[in-house]
Design a protein around this nucleic acid. Structure first.
Length: 844
RNA sequence: GCCCUCGUGGUGAAAUUGGUAGACACAAAGGACUUAAAAUCCUUGCCCUUUUGGGAGUGCCAGUUCGAGUCUGGCCGAGGGCACCA
């Protein structure tokens, strides 16, 4: 019997698919489209197991939809601008472009080895001029629409990467890539006005019903919509200051007002800039760290001014005004009114500076003389000690009532505030998309005239300079427009801009004039299924949602808002970690075991290895498995099969050598089964097997359901079961007249998972029409069924009987059966419950 | 501190959404084949009983129900997100 040689057969089919352009996609309005997209990779050098999992999941879906008759768009590209190329270039004195292109070449070959159904005709790379020239046009378009602006402000400065980071890119006070503690620095920066769409971005999350709830909640928190009001406080004590504006969500606690706090960056700080005590104070504020603990434990400190704020609801009450370290300038108006009784921060502050703590809300279950003592009470209740507000339910009624009063008195008005801030896109980097802006000698700026586009990155420049390499290229910086000399902007765009619209480019990747073709986009968009890691839950997905809105803003042609109809976030690939006696991380390749308990170093078996917890594969912990090695060892189908088998795709999966090996063996078994059936097929046909048709149809019914719900691990179990059934039935050595028909349905059903093997087997059996098989409903009906028999809710046995048996007949049958008689004894049946064709429960 | 998610064998996990808990796989133990090993195949899996059989059992405690892994309330534990957002 022939053995399955995956090396030859996988290469054969990959060549076949490529030569026949099987995955080439074209607009076809007669067919229903399906756009399946996985997050495109950064070309860092080689693919890793995370890619294998991500792209296998997408490929299973694409191939399934294709078999179901959809016109499937399944493209791939490269998120190829970014820091690693620049760093590698510095180290190896190699052009980032060449480094990137080499990596793309390698990774593309690796992806091809996986047998993915990708339309490589649509390949794009964000660092190519063909791509980023359109991005520059977008920038200008957005600039003209007022969605881009320049502003000097404090930025998150990454001292290692020497660049600015967006708020979203700072994690626990550290740079998301470098891990360096982020510093505050004042810089002039370009911003995208994402806040323009804050409300919409928040509201329309509700309509994304094919997104994981987790991601929607994360975005919701990030956008951070809050309802409240702004209040103007009259100020006395200095003629130069008349009013201070505050934002609050709890205006109803105004009678608990005992101080007003403003940020050290508040415009009023101007009046104190020469005051040495204030300078001292500001210094102290900036020193408090940005780490998790330091913020949580940071002491509330203040600097008392000579100003007093008047309570707008009772003008006789005046309270001091402080600069305080816990007030942020970039939220609200950089000023808050302090109500120590019902806000913990205000409480801490009041304790420290011995300010009055008034109780104006009492919890529902407390007496009327309730007093805040050890901590603030921010919860719901009833307003007290507040004159005309007394008795209102807080916060629902009381907030609305207070806003009404404030609006009537023209002291304040309803206001909705967002946590979301505009997206700073300037990066002091070489390897990114140049920003199409020019400055004249006076520093005033304008967008680059259309005919001067695109702005290409200069080549062969020195990257080993301090700061931004582009600012050191005198020649490149100068540009003549209408005979006048201008200087180019030297910052480049955040690479998240590149990935904010690539899904549109895939619709018409070859269009030279336009970033995309409207006809194509109308047909293909939105992406029906987007698949990627949950780490992009906020950054990339929010930016993309913004970008679609920015394009459709003031645009009659383009009306789409949500880029991704369905989102699926897959889990990570994990592996055990190993450390040797010297506490060094060791890779799985270096480690061996004989009994599964004691591990040793392969090269030195006196060196005991300590097995650590299983963690997501990472270079730093050296617990990675190289996909290319595994593919060479076991073949692409086996790897695809294994990566889907053990855990649901949304959860982390554990890499296991044993599991991988058994998947490989199973692939062989499937081939052996195919050989056996091929043999049987040469025999004389016998009658058809009802049992076979029944099994296959029920199997198809299950697998289709599981394919549609991403229950890919269950599919693998279904395939094992089907194989086991088919092996049993072929042992009878009968060429049933329905054998090939039914078996071929099985072969087609496994094509999305193991495309090479399936194609080969189908080919060997000379089956050429390959469509997803329809389930024949008549085989789903069981004539005989098992009914669970319970007495007092306890299972006492199973009764095999005819389907749709009448309840009375069933009861008769049970009562005359010896097996059940003993449970009855002399008891009488008080009541019974019958679930048709499933279960009967007697109460005795 | 606030928000979200999840707790099922030695392990990864299934379970028609309230109706046979543990499908399928990994690991383990025992057995068959073999001179032997590898490979392959079969069996077992908590407690009591020689077996037939019976009991307990889905983090813990209650509740709803004829019936709860699934629903409700409380507690415990793990993971993730946010971080002085007024």
């Amino acid at each position: 019997m022939e053995r399955y040689n995956f090396k030859i057969i996988e290469a054969k089919w990959q060549k076949f698919w490529e030569k026949n352009e099987v995955f080439k996609t074209q607009l076809n309005k007669k067919k229903k489209k399906f756009y399946c997209l996985e997050m495109f990779p950064y070309p860092s050098g080689k693919i890793h197991m995370g890619h294998v999992r991500n792209y296998t999941i997408g490929d299973v879906l694409s191939r399934f939809k294709s078999l179901k008759g959809f016109n499937v768009l399944h493209p791939m590209g490269w998120d190829s601008f970014g820091m690693p190329a620049e760093n590698a270039a510095k180290e190896n004195k190699q052009d980032p472009k060449i480094w990137t292109e080499n990596n793309i070449e390698t990774m593309k070959n690796q992806l091809k080895q996986l047998g993915l159904s990708i339309d490589w005709n649509r390949e794009i790379s964000t660092c190519s001029e063909e791509y980023y020239k359109h991005q520059q046009k977008f920038f200008i378009e957005m600039f003209n629409k007022g969605l881009v602006y320049k502003k000097e402000n404090y930025v998150n400065w990454d001292p290692v990467d020497q660049t600015v980071l967006a708020n979203e890119q700072v994690i626990d006070g550290k740079g998301w890539r470098s891990g360096a503690v982020v510093e505050r620095k004042k810089l002039s920066q370009w911003f995208f006005k994402i806040s323009e769409f804050a409300d919409e971005l928040q509201n329309e999350l509700d309509n994304l019903d094919e997104w994981p709830n987790k991601v929607k909640v994360m975005q919701q928190n990030w956008i951070g919509k809050s309802f409240g009001c702004e209040i103007d406080f009259d100020i006395v004590g200095d003629d130069k200051v008349k009013k201070i504006k505050c934002f609050t969500t709890r205006p109803d606690t105004l009678f608990g007002f005992s101080f007003l706090a403003i940020s050290v960056d508040h415009p009023l700080s101007e009046f104190y800039r020469n005051d040495p005590n204030f300078i001292d104070f500001r210094e102290k504020c900036s020193k408090s760290g940005t780490t998790e603990e330091s913020i949580a434990n940071a002491e509330k400190i203040g600097f008392k001014t000579n100003l007093l704020a008047i309570n707008p609801l009772d003008k006789t009450l005046k309270v001091p005004v402080y600069f305080a370290n816990f007030v942020l300038m970039d939220y609200g108006f950089g000023a808050v009114f302090g109500c120590p009784g019902h806000d913990q921060r205000d409480f801490d502050f009041a304790k420290k500076y011995k300010l009055e703590i008034k109780t104006v809300v009492k919890p529902l279950n407390e007496k009327d003389d309730f007093k805040v003592t050890n901590e603030a009470y921010p919860g719901p209740g009833v307003i007290i000690n507040s004159k005309f507000l007394n008795g209102f339910n807080a916060p629902d009624e009381s907030v609305i009532e207070t806003i009404k009063i404030l609006e009537e008195k023209k002291i304040g008005k309803k206001k909705i505030n967002f946590r979301l801030k505009d997206w700073g896109v300037s990066r002091q980097r070489y390897w990114g998309c140049p920003i199409p802006i020019i400055y004249d000698e006076n520093g005033s700026y304008k967008t680059v005239p259309e005919e001067q586009l695109p702005i290409k990155l200069p080549q062969n420049i020195n990257l080993n300079t301090k700061g931004n390499p582009l600012s050191n290229t005198e020649e490149w910086r100068k540009i003549k427009v209408d005979g006048k000399t201008y200087y180019r902007e030297t910052d480049t765009l955040d690479t998240f801009v590149d990935s904010s619209w690539y899904y549109l480019r895939f619709c018409s990747p070859k269009n030279k004039e336009e970033p995309f073709d409207n006809e194509e986009v109308k047909y293909w968009m939105p992406v029906d299924q987007y698949i990627g890691g949950v780490e992009h839950a906020i950054l990339h997905l929010l930016y993309s949602r913004f970008f679609m809105r920015a394009i459709s803003y003031q645009n009659n042609e383009f009306k789409l808002k949500e880029p991704f109809k369905g989102l699926f976030t897959q889990g990570m690939v994990c592996h055990e970690t190993y450390k040797d006696q010297e506490n060094n991380w060791r890779s799985p390749d270096e480690v061996t075991t004989k009994d599964g308990k004691n591990y040793f170093l392969k090269s030195d078996n006196s060196n005991k290895i300590f097995v650590g917890s299983s963690e997501s594969m990472s270079k730093s912990k050296r617990n990675t498995i190289d996909p290319e090695k595994i593919i060479n060892l076991y073949g692409a189908d086996a790897v695809r099969f294994f990566i889907l088998s053990d855990s649901p795709p949304e959860k982390d999966v554990q890499w296991s050598e044993q599991g991988m090996l058994s998947s490989y063996k199973f692939i062989q078994k499937l081939f052996v089964l195919n050989e056996k059936i091929k043999e049987l097929n040469n025999q004389k046909k016998t009658v058809s097997s009802n049992e076979l048709s029944k099994f296959i149809n029920q199997y198809l019914n299950k697998i289709e359901k599981n394919l549609s719900n991403f229950h890919y691990n269950v599919i693998i179990a279904n395939i094992y079961e089907a194989h086991s059934f088919l092996s049993q039935i072929t042992k009878k050595n009968e060429n049933y007249s329905n054998l090939i028909t039914e078996y071929s349905k099985f072969l087609i059903s496994i094509l999305p998972v193991v495309p090479h093997l399936s194609s080969e087997c189908l080919d060997k059996l000379k089956i050429s029409t390959i469509d997803w098989p329809n389930v024949d409903e008549k085989f789903l009906i069981e004539e005989n069924i098992n009914i669970v028999v319970q007495f007092n809710g306890k299972k006492r046995g199973i009764l095999s009987t005819k389907k749709d048996i009448l309840e009375e007949d069933l009861v008769k049958e049970i009562l005359k059966s010896k097996n059940f008689a003993k449970f009855l004894k002399e008891n009488t049946i008080k009541k019974r419950f019958y679930v048709k064709n499933r279960l009967i429960n007697f109460l005795i």
